[in-house]
């Protein structure tokens, strides 16, 4: 007596096996997008440090300063488009300051590069940006891990004519809030 029941069992076995293998493959594939815990924390620490430094740079030091047009180091840097000053302030006064050596440095100070951009709303109500250039860091090419931190600051107008080659023409010359965006990455 020959029938097809055993062949059906075989096909069921193969189908069940395939389903299980496919499921396992999908599950493994989906978990592999999680970054390992340590890498994630390092990025988070660098992000926190960058965010803190911007906040500290944007705090006036005394009452007299707080009442002046450029109240803070950061406002003064942006209003004068001083990219070199920003780099030195950010790295040497805070991140890698030799007077206050951190227990743990998530990125070696000699290797770190930073780039600051200023985002504004232009005459046509569309956002625009420009780079605060510094001679020590090239552009971030998006290769390798980098973190991005931002901070809103107040400016009293378009930065002066000395930096007219850097600041785009459609930036309004009036008091406004601009976004300072800093990208930090390991060279």
């Amino acid at each position: 007596m020959v029938n097809e029941r055993a062949q059906l069992y075989t096909m069921e076995g193969i189908a069940a096996g395939l389903i299980m293998l496919l499921t396992t493959y999908l599950v493994l594939g989906s978990t592999s997008v999680y970054t390992p815990g340590d890498t994630h924390i390092t990025d988070m620490q660098l992000e926190q440090v960058g965010s803190d430094i911007l906040r500290v740079m944007d705090t006036p030091r005394n009452l007299t300063d707080s009442l002046q047009p450029n109240r803070t180091d950061l406002e003064l840097i942006v209003s004068t488009t001083n990219g070199n000053g920003f780099y030195w302030n950010f790295t040497h006064d805070y991140l890698c300051n030799p007077k206050a050596v951190a227990k743990e440095i998530s990125v070696e100070c000699t290797d770190i590069q930073i780039n600051a951009s200023i985002w504004y709303v232009g005459n046509s109500n569309s956002p625009g940006s420009y780079l605060l250039p510094n001679p020590y860091s090239g552009g971030y090419l998006g290769i390798g891990p980098g973190v991005r931190v931002t901070h809103w600051i107040h400016t009293n107008g378009k930065p002066g004519s000395a930096s007219s080659g850097i600041v785009p023409g459609d930036m309004r010359n009036e008091p406004q809030e601009v976004l300072v965006e800093v990208v930090m990455w390991k060279a």
């Binding site: 055993a6 069992y9 075989t10 076995g13 299980m20 978990t31 815990g37």
Partner: peptide, 29 residues
Amino acid sequence: MDFLVGFTIFILSLIMVANFVPSLLVGLQ
């Protein structure tokens, strides 16, 4: 005979999956 082949494939797949499962949690450990 066909049943035996089907059952074997099923058992082998089950063993493979059982081996994979612990490695799923390695990244979180």
